[in-house]
Design a protein around this nucleic acid. Structure first.
Length: 843
DNA sequence: GCAAGGTC
């Protein structure tokens, strides 16, 4: 029997497609990939019996990167990145995706690719083919790789795709390869250059990376553009005639009228109109017009609209929204939350979806009403061919979901119900009023049928917009006439929801990546989020954008992305080949890069006025081993030491506190050591600023603290304090922290294993004697405190192995270090898994 | 350490 391997883009889709094609008759099993299941069933393929294995990848299998020798920022000139060799690395090594695909493809006759039908999906097709091609059974001549093309996850579409299999589109896949390569080279070259340039000059940038990217930079550009509009706004005075008239019986109600000329920027002219209007004590109603109007119910919900409303209506940011939506999806409350589609598939069971909600008290009456025959046909939206719109799948309660998840869920339900409700209908009444020849009007809305606004209450027409009761020919008393002076006001800062709209409009990012780009510009300290989720650019963000505008405005223009896309489309349509497009575009950007480097001083001029020179920031801390002068500790991100005399900067470990280490010196370079600590629950290690940046021994990697140093005799080195190998990570060593007493600690110099031992002992140190039992461990010398020694007869001196000695072992506890200093601590950071292997014998 | 794009 022939066998067929079928691969979808994500696990959820593999399940849906298997369900459809096997008529629900399939068996699922685990695989070598922790995220992917394999669904198996029997069926027919190529007019004969066949065994099907339906499974998936998790997005891209590979991601593009430079060969590792280009990863040293100090040794590689960023210009080299425009033609440095690249390689494809497994996108997520933890998933063992390649191994998994190869295992499943071994000996298989056919491969059917069910990846999403867009360019990225086409690219992933070839990632799968490249991974498994040589593992499949080879039948020369006949086609054994097929592409399924589908535009919706419906029975009809999926079956039809299976019957009309085609071939993957190589050109589209190549256009994505080109996009990846361009983004990588351009993004990294600019990012590395400007990071090194400005980080080496200023001490208060407060951002460890000054990134540049073809999506994130134009995104920042939008925020700064609005900031500039606000800054350059010159308020102008204008004037208008404000008239109030009395209506109703005995003039019980006063109503303000709108002037037909709205406003004028000439005070005297308006004064003239005021005088004319004041001459009359009455106003005459010339006409009363009534118009039936509708406010249309929304189209079905897609990702971007969900992000917009979550931000503007619920005050939840895009990144957080996607996290919540993901959770609601995994728990079965809502459908797949990443979709561009705003149109329900033809066979979508709208009533069934409504029925699920009928048990939920808050929606029950509305749902019942819709189910009793009032349900409307949803408005036609756009079918992007990816996933159905976002809909609720089952009822939930606030206690079940809690907090923000509940508020998001409630919105998704409200929106879903709204798409099936009637439009909101209202009557708009406009009265035209004449006061001594000048025309005014007043209008009001009166709701005749709230329709969908009964659930989407925030869109309801407010009751105060109702119209006073007047008729044509009525004469009204003028109650008040005033000359009003006002000023034009600047726009407000961009809201996140407006930004999302701008990004979508200019094709910057995708529904899945828009939250990432916005998050990026926040994390890089380019913008901050103010109340109402408005984005206010920081000085750093403003200076960067203004600098690009001075040097090469293209770099920040939203059109840059679309210009590149146009080039890429040439590859898709076979009008240009991969190499020529890549060469052409890289050529342009290489020149832009060189020009930027040459004229970076015009950007620097802006930095100079906004930021403090490195030499003028920081507090003196430790002495430089070269010039013996004090170096200054710069605490703004990234933490570093700066020597003013040598004009050199030394990076230090991040996420911790740095202090002087008793003025002790490194024997190799005479630099004064500093002590790096991640807090009382974390680790502490001495650091030589020079060795940390320039490893003294070939086997030592960059960013090594003294607890990783292999110096044979230095009393601060790993050699001096290493007790044994870590039992949780493969390459770490357990090193005694000589500064930790009286709460003595041994910490792994790679992972977060932390051992507490012999609390309150007077002294703990490593001996040079290995343990007989566990040969790779050294015995420890302990000098107990007289008052609480565990030794008999008040003895205080003891030597033993912390793992097997009956006296010491009970005084040893395994912990996991907090990975960050509490000051920088955000979210969870403690303990993952417990020990294994030797740990069973250990503490 | 860097981009943007998939998704877990």
């Amino acid at each position: 029997m022939k066998s067929v391997l079928m691969v979808a883009e994500k696990p959820s889709l593999a399940t849906s497609i298997a369900k459809i094609l096997s008529h629900g008759n399939f068996k699922s099993r685990k695989s070598a990939c922790p995220a992917c299941q394999v669904h198996e069933y029997a069926g027919r393929f190529n007019r004969s019996e066949a065994f099907f294995k339906m499974t998936s990848v998790c997005g891209h299998v590979f991601s593009l990167d430079f060969q590792s020798r280009y990863n040293n920022w100090d040794a590689v000139d960023p210009i080299e990145l425009f033609d440095a060799e690249t390689e494809k690395k497994e996108a997520n090594p933890k998933l063992h995706m390649v191994k998994f695909l190869q295992q499943e493809a071994r000996g298989v006759d056919y491969l059917v690719l069910w990846l999403d039908c867009d360019k990225e999906g086409e690219n992933i097709c070839y990632e799968v083919i490249d991974s498994v091609g040589s593992f499949m059974k080879h039948t020369s001549g006949s086609q054994n790789v097929f592409r399924a093309k589908f535009s919706a996850i419906t029975d009809k579409d999926i079956r039809q795709a299976m019957e009309t299999l085609g071939t993957p589109n190589f050109n589209e896949a190549r256009s994505v390869d080109a996009r990846q390569e361009l983004d990588l080279r351009i993004g990294c070259a600019f990012t590395r250059f400007q990071t090194r340039y400005f980080q080496g000059k200023y001490g208060d940038l407060d951002s460890s990376i000054i990134s540049y990217g073809p999506c994130q930079t134009p995104t920042l550009g939008f925020c700064v553009e609005r900031h500039d509009q606000i800054q350059s706004f010159k308020p102008e005075s204008y004037w208008l005639v404000a008239v109030k008239v009395s209506v109703g019986s005995f003039g019980s109600q006063t109503v303000s009228l709108e002037w037909d000329r709205v406003r004028l920027f000439d005070r005297e002219a308006v004064q003239m109109f005021v005088s004319r209007v004041k001459e009359s004590k009455t106003a005459k109603v010339l006409s009363v017009q009534q118009k039936e109007k509708t406010k249309a119910r929304p189209i079905a919900l897609n990702t971007v609209e969900m992000l917009r409303t979550a931000s503007s209506g619920l005050g939840i940011g895009p990144q957080h929204t996607m996290m919540l939506a993901e959770r609601l999806y995994v728990q079965g409350y809502i459908s797949y939350p990443r979709t561009e589609t705003t149109h329900y598939p033809e066979n979508f069971d709208l009533k069934g979806a409504l029925r699920q909600l009928s048990g939920q008290s808050s929606w029950a009456p509305t749902v019942k009403d819709l189910l009793s025959g009032n349900m409307q046909t949803p408005k036609k939206g756009h079918d992007a061919g990816d996933h159905p719109p976002i809909t609720p799948l089952r009822a939930a309660t606030e206690t079940e979901l809690g907090g923000d998840a509940w508020r998001l869920y409630r919105y998704i339900v409200d929106h879903f119900i709204a798409t099936l409700s009637r439009d909101c209908r209202y009557v708009m009444t406009t009265a035209t009023v004449d006061v001594n020849g000048e025309l005014f009007s007043c209008s009001g809305k009166s709701v005749t049928e709230p329709g969908y606004t009964a659930v989407m209450t925030w869109q309801a027409i407010p009751s105060d917009e109702r119209m006073p009761d007047v008729k044509k020919g009525d004469t009204l008393n003028v109650a008040d006439v005033k000359l009003v002076e006002r000023q034009t006001s600047p726009p407000d800062y961009l809201t996140e929801s407006e930004l999302i709209t701008l990004m979508e409009k200019h094709g910057i990012g995708t529904d899945a990546s828009i939250p990432v780009h916005i998050n990026n510009i926040c994390e890089r300290n380019y913008v901050s989020i103010a109340s109402g989720r408005r984005l206010i650019p920081t000085t750093l963000g403003i200076v960067l954008v203004h600098g690009y505008q001075k040097i090469d405005p293209d770099l920040v223009l939203p059109t840059m992305r679309s210009a590149v896309e146009e080039q890429l489309n040439l590859i898709c349509h076979g009008k240009a080949d991969f190499d020529s497009v890549l060469r052409h575009t890289l050529d342009i950007f290489t020149r832009k890069f060189r020009y930027f480097v040459e004229y970076v001083t015009s950007l620097d001029e802006l930095f100079e006025v906004s930021f403090t020179k490195l030499s003028e920031t920081g507090k003196p801390l430790s002495k430089c081993g070269i010039c013996r002068h004090y170096m200054k500790l710069v605490t703004a991100k990234p933490t570093r030491l700066h020597c003013k005399t040598c004009d050199k900067t030394y990076r230090l470990p991040q996420n911790g506190a740095i202090k002087l280490y008793k003025e002790l010196k490194c024997p190799l370079d005479e630099f004064e050591l500093v002590l790096w600590t991640t807090g009382t629950r974390g680790k502490t290690a001495p650091v030589c600023p020079n060795c940390y940046n320039y490893p003294p021994f070939p086997a030592m990697s960059k960013d090594s603290t003294c607890s990783m140093c292999t110096h044979p005799t230095c009393k601060h080195s790993m050699t001096a304090h290493k007790v044994g190998a870590c039992w949780e990570c493969p390459s770490g060593d357990l090193v005694l922290d000589p500064t930790s007493g009286p709460k003595w600690k041994i910490a792994c110099n790679k992972c977060n294993v932390l051992i507490h031992l012999c609390e309150n002992a007077f002294r703990v140190s490593k001996s040079s004697t290995p343990c007989d039992e566990c040969s790779s461990f050294y015995l420890v010398d302990v000098d107990f405190n007289k008052t609480n020694t565990p030794l008999s007869g008040g003895e205080t001196r003891y030597q033993g192995c912390i793992f097997c000695d009956p006296v010491l072992n009970p005084l040893v506890q395994l912990h996991h270090a907090a990975r960050q200093h509490p000051m920088y601590h955000r979210g969870r950071g403690r303990g993952r898994r417990r020990g294994r292997g030797r740990g069973h014998r250990g503490p």
